[in-house]
Structures are given as structure tokens and as C-alpha cells.
């Protein structure tokens, strides 16, 4: 085991997959010689050359479609969309082309490809550099959606995503880049579709993903001191969703809340909450609660802190549910 930060876990995953399979290649703005806006592809251009680590023009739809086409004939492209806010431009290729090709070809043409994209707040940069737009994609049959929270998870899940035969939207929270964590020295992968119980508990289940997992863990720590034992589930993959882990936990705790950064309304929490209601409504001791981003564009500067879920809110709601 070595302690590395989230950012390097991404770089190592890319490096290992580029080395393992010559069908893997990277495209995106500044991913090449300059090593990426966040340094995530540093050193890869020198190692694998300009065709496998390709700098592209500002053409989000074009490069996402490039990945669709290359994937169709057996390559494993990895696209970087620098900020998830720009993924609006790539939706056509993801939702209408990548997601539907295997289906509409009668199961004959696969589209293995990954779109890595940087989401979430932390930079306090406002409306166009802060959003988490996962639910645009969890709504589309044919796409997989991954949103990891630790260096260990991001590395193992990115490697699995690159090896997966389906289009994967892989979301990296910018606020996690300097987070340090243990990562095995030997090769490993983490299967898509498996949630991870990051803390065990018996009184309330906090279901989360991405950066919010860490706030949930912090809240759970504080709640423990007050005698509330919270279980924290990190979904890690939103599609496919590990319903089993969610339901098993809520069967035990009889209380559930979902914590996420994206706009609460029609966000992924609504899906999780509905599943719990559909399956376990008579077991619940309290209504399922959602703690998520406000229904406004993301404000600039420190106002961002109030927009996103806070540890205090999680504690407050957990107490309301448990007393």
C-alpha cells in the first residue's frame, strides 16, 4: 500500500491502462504535451506519443463522437471533458449515439468508451465550472455512470470503466483531487455496480457518492458522539446501481437519507428515495430525506458553501429522523 492523492490515482489508472492495451487512447483539450489543466495526464504524452494522448481543439461534441466511432471498431478511447458543465455539448453523442448503438445494431456493435469529466464545487467559480450533472446521464438506458470518492476507488473504477464494453460517464470531483488515501501497489480493479459501505451503523443509512461521502462520514462521526450510529453507503456507481446494498442497509436501520451535491430536484437522490419507498415503505420509521444542492444556479464565491449540502445539515436531519 502507498498513500497517494486522488489526482495521482487517476493518472496511474490511465498510465496502467495505456500500457496494458494499445487500443486505449486519450483525447481532450490540453491532455497532451501540457499534461492537462489539472496535471492529470502529466508524463503520458512523452510515454505514449501524440496519437495515443491527443490534444484536441475545443470541440466537445466532435471528440466525444470520435470516441463513439473508434469504440465501434474495437478501440477503447478515453475522452476528457475538462469541466462537466461543458458536457452539455457532448450529450448528443453520449445519449443518442453511444448509448443506443449496441441496442439498435441488434447487439452487434459495442461502444466501449469512457468520458472522464471534472465535476463539483470547490473552486467557487460559479455557474459554469461547478456543476454535478450525473442525473442527465443516469436517465439514459445504455450508459453507465460512475462517481468515485477515494483514491482507491477512483483508480480501481477507472480501470474497470476503460475495460468495460459500454459507454461510461466517469465523474471526478475536483474538490477531491488532493485527498490522500491508501492504494495497493499491485494491480487491482473494482467492479462497476458495487456500492461500498464506508462506515457501518444501525440507526440511519446515509447514502451518498462523490465528495458528499466525506461530509456524510464527518457527520456520522459527530452523530456517534451523540449516540446515533449512522451507516454510510458510498454508491460509487450510479448505473448500474447496487440496490441490494441500499435495501439491505435500510432494512436494518429503517431510516435513509441521500446526500449529494447536484440540484436536489429531479436529482439522483429522487431515484434512490423512490426505490427505498417502493420496496420498504412499511419498514420505514421516518420519511426518506434528501440533502442536496439548492434549486438555483451555483453562485460565485463563498456563497457556494451554503448552496451545497453541509455537515451540519446532515447532522440536523439525522437527528430529526432518529428522535
Amino acid at each position: 500500500m502507498t498513500k497517494i492523492n486522488f489526482r495521482w490515482a487517476i493518472t496511474h489508472a490511465l498510465d496502467e491502462e495505456l500500457a496494458r492495451d494499445d487500443k486505449v487512447f486519450l483525447v481532450g483539450q490540453d491532455v497532451g504535451e501540457s499534461g492537462g489543466v489539472f496535471g492529470l495526464t502529466r508524463g503520458l504524452y512523452e510515454k505514449y506519443g501524440g496519437w495515443r494522448v491527443k490534444d484536441t481543439p475545443i470541440s466537445e461534441e466532435g471528440i466525444t463522437g470520435l470516441a463513439v466511432g473508434a469504440g465501434m471498431i474495437g478501440h477503447r478511447p478515453v475522452v476528457e471533458i475538462m469541466y462537466m458543465d461543458f458536457i452539455s455539448l457532448a450529450i448528443e453523442q453520449l445519449a443518442n449515439q453511444a448509448a443506443k448503438t449496441f441496442y439498435v445494431s441488434g447487439g452487434k456493435i459495442k461502444v466501449p468508451m469512457v468520458v472522464r469529466t471534472l465535476a463539483g464545487g470547490g473552486f467557487k467559480a460559479g455557474i459554469h465550472h461547478s456543476q454535478s450533472l450525473e442525473s442527465w446521464f443516469t436517465h439514459i438506458p445504455g450508459l453507465k455512470v460512475v462517481y468515485p470518492s477515494t483514491p482507491y476507488d477512483v483508480k480501481g473504477l477507472l480501470k474497470s470503466s476503460i475495460r468495460d464494453d459500454n459507454p461510461v460517464v466517469f465523474i471526478e470531483h475536483k474538490g477531491l483531487f488532493s485527498l490522500k488515501g491508501e492504494v495497493p501497489d499491485e494491480e487491482y480493479t473494482i467492479p462497476l455496480g458495487k456500492a461500498d459501505i464506508k462506515r457501518e451503523g444501525s440507526d440511519v443509512t446515509i447514502i451518498s457518492y462523490g465528495k458528499s461521502v466525506h461530509q456524510s462520514l464527518e457527520a456520522a462521526e459527530a452523530l456517534a458522539e451523540e449516540g446515533i450510529c449512522a451507516e454510510v453507503i458510498d454508491l460509487r456507481t450510479l448505473v448500474p446501481l447496487d440496490k441490494e446494498t441500499i435495501l439491505k442497509s435500510v432494512e436494518k436501520t429503517n431510516r435513509a437519507m441521500v446526500v449529494y451535491e447536484a440540484t436536489k430536484e429531479s436529482g439522483f437522490g429522487a431515484e434512490v428515495s423512490s426505490i427505498i419507498s417502493e420496496e420498504l415503505i412499511y419498514d420505514l420509521d421516518a420519511p426518506v430525506r434528501r440533502i442536496a444542492g439548492a434549486f438555483t444556479p451555483i453562485p460565485l464565491g463563498d456563497a457556494e458553501d451554503a448552496h451545497f449540502p453541509t455537515v451540519e445539515e446532515i447532522i440536523k436531519v439525522a437527528k430529526e429522523m432518529c428522535y
Binding site: 487512447f25 496519437w51 495515443r52 461534441e61 466532435g62 471528440i63 466525444t64 463522437g65 470520435l66 470516441a67 463513439v68 466511432g69 473508434a70 469504440g71 465501434m72 471498431i73 474495437g74 478501440h75 478511447p77 448528443e92 453523442q93 443518442n96 449515439q97
Partner: peptide
């Protein structure tokens, strides 16, 4: 929407 897909197939062939 087929143009980017064609680009990708050509890119893969070049690669």
C-alpha cells in the same frame, strides 16, 4: 451526428 463517428473510425484506422 454521424460526422464525429466517422472521424473516430478514421482516427482509429490512422492509429
Amino acid at each position: 451526428s454521424n460526422l464525429p463517428i466517422a472521424l473516430g473510425i478514421a482516427y482509429a484506422n490512422k492509429l
